[in-house]
């Protein structure tokens, strides 16, 4: 059994579909942040058979987790402070997603206007589809690129 130590402050993302933690690492842009990350892959799970777990040591106010619900609503988010779980977050699709994904409609004004935030509004909760605020095209967010953090 592999043991990974406790974190003092940050998030433990549990019940990630096995093999998906690396893509979540990129979606959360953890490579651009000053935080320690432990990635546990293929851990045994009663519920899922196999699962991944991500432990992220960081300021809990400094990480936007909106992207998680869009990628997989079954992920459990444990919020850690002073080494203890202070909250278990249920993931729900946010009504608005701002500066996370890029609209891919080449006719959209976001494709040319500098510094314009890419904003999407939830349009179809069942299918998890969002509409771009400006061109109103509908997208599955998973098909879109992330906005680069500068």
């Amino acid at each position: 059994m592999l043991n990974v130590g406790k974190i003092e402050e940050g998030f433990v993302l549990d019940h990630i579909k096995a093999g998906q933690s690396l893509s979540l690492y990129h979606h959360l842009q953890l490579d651009t942040r000053d935080c320690t990350v432990a990635m546990i892959m293929n851990a045994k799970s009663d519920k899922m058979g196999k699962k991944d777990i991500l432990k992220v040591e960081c300021d809990i106010n400094d990480l936007n987790l909106d992207v998680l619900a869009v990628i997989d609503r079954n992920i459990t988010v444990n919020v850690i402070k002073d080494g203890e779980i202070i909250q278990k977050k249920e993931l729900t699709l946010p009504q608005e997603i701002k500066r996370v994904f890029k609209c891919k409609n080449p006719r959209c004004i976001t494709s040319i206007e500098q510094e314009l935030p890419h904003i999407f509004f939830l349009s179809d909760e069942t299918k998890g589809l969002y509409r771009c605020k400006y061109c109103e095209e509908k997208f599955d967010m998973r098909s879109l690129e992330r906005v680069k953090i500068s």
């Binding site: 006719r107 004004i109 040319i112 400006y134």
Partner: peptide, 10 residues
């Protein structure tokens, strides 16, 4: 009038 969609909203 603008060829890009959403430009007047901006």
């Amino acid at each position: 009038r603008h060829p890009k969609e959403g430009a007047p909203m901006v």
